[in-house]
């Protein structure tokens, strides 16, 4: 049933010449492969959920599901910020959009929040400063990429080191505890006993998904990333969208910083360790999207998939070290499959 609908579905809007260029038989094969890949990802996710639900009585409890969402909140917010940069900058891993400063941004923003709270500043000031920190980092990235035309991979790598250094200077590499009304609310439980951070992640993902996937602005961002030449020809200020995407990811870093301060009761060291998991989550996102392209909903599902694996492994009393192995295997599969598909399409 599903396969048939796929055959009659016209090619994606961004590939108008595709059908004419590729012979019919390999066209069918391509569609089948794509469908298999994306259907496969959903099937794997469903299977994983089923296995965990059958083998652990508490897996599907609202309390545990809420925990999974809350545990995925920090990396999820960062991965969504990163996804916006990837969408606006294009998916090429080397020259396309990427923001490697996100995890360090989260660390510095959390440190700014915790330091100001310790210095007796009210929540509004501390939280405002944390978000502003993220935004400034985003602005530096934006200037480096759009004004100085540095490849995002290198620009954000440099900014990552600067930000990491600033965090060390600010915290002296120590833990700065913080207990504030805002943090207590964020780390506590909300309606239905589900953690507030879980609502935070869902809310942030929903708003971003609507903006990127259901508005004219979102369409333009996607156009800028996928076809910069065409976008420029049709009068879009490409650089402005790219800069905007870095500002947004910077802000995501600031927000994740506040979430992290809530989750860890202050700022702690080692924020940089989150970078690779976040990049991995964003790279895994396309398998959870309809057309195997980066999307906010895909990244959210990818973040939750990783969260479910980690949680389920603990519930089954299995070593969590296996999770990173499974993640790596999935990415290798996804990247090789999409590369093969693209080569065939091209």
């Amino acid at each position: 049933m599903l396969a048939e609908t796929a055959f009659v579905t016209p090619a994606t809007p961004y590939h108008p010449g595709e059908e004419a260029a590729v012979p019919a038989r390999s066209q069918i094969g391509l569609h089948a492969a794509k469908l298999g890949l994306q259907g496969g990802a959903f099937a794997v996710f469903a299977l994983v959920l089923l296995i965990f639900a059958l083998s652990s009585p508490i897996f599907l409890s609202p309390f545990n599901l809420g925990n999974i969402l809350a545990q995925s909140a920090i990396s999820g917010v960062l991965a969504i910020g990163l996804t916006v940069v990837i969408i606006a900058g294009g998916g090429n891993v080397v020259t396309g959009g990427i923001d490697l400063s996100l995890a360090a941004n989260m660390g510095l923003s959390a440190a700014v929040y915790a330091s100001l709270s310790q210095a007796g500043q009210p929540d509004a000031v501390a939280a405002g400063a944390a978000l502003a920190t993220g935004l400034v980092i985003g602005a530096v990235n934006a200037v480096a990429v759009t004004r100085f035309a540095i490849v995002p991979l290198l620009a954000t790598l440099a900014v990552m080191n600067i930000v990491g250094g600033l965090e060390l200077v600010l915290t002296q590499n120590t833990v700065i505890p913080a207990v504030t009304p805002l943090l207590e609310t964020l780390s506590g439980a909300g309606p239905l006993g589900v953690p507030v951070l879980a609502y935070g992640l869902i809310g942030f993902a929903l708003v971003t998904a609507l903006a990127v996937q259901a508005t004219p602005l979102g369409l333009r961002i996607q156009a800028v990333g996928s076809f910069p030449e065409a976008a420029r020809a049709s009068g879009l200020a490409v650089n402005r969208f790219v800069a905007g995407s870095f500002l947004f990811s910077g802000l995501s870093g600031g927000l994740a910083g506040i979430f992290s301060a809530a989750y860890l009761s202050g700022s702690t060291t080692g924020a940089g360790e989150l970078l690779l998991p976040v990049v991995v989550t964003a790279l895994l996102g396309p398998v959870f999207s309809r057309r195997l392209v980066p999307s906010i909903t895909g990244t959210l599902l990818s973040a939750l998939f990783v969260g479910v694996l980690i949680n389920g492994f603990q519930l089954l009393n299995l070593s969590s070290t296996l999770v990173s192995g499974i993640q790596g295997l999935l990415i290798l599969l996804v990247v090789s499959a999409t590369t093969l598909l693209k080569r065939k399409e091209g």
Binding site: A70, G270, N317
Partner: peptide, 22 residues
């Protein structure tokens, strides 16, 4: 039910949270 946070505070808290649910 043994969990090792690998010196990562975020992981440590997640594992404790799940442990409480268990």
């Amino acid at each position: 039910i043994a969990v090792d946070a690998g010196r990562n505070d975020g992981k440590l808290v997640s594992q404790l949270q799940t442990l409480i649910a268990q």
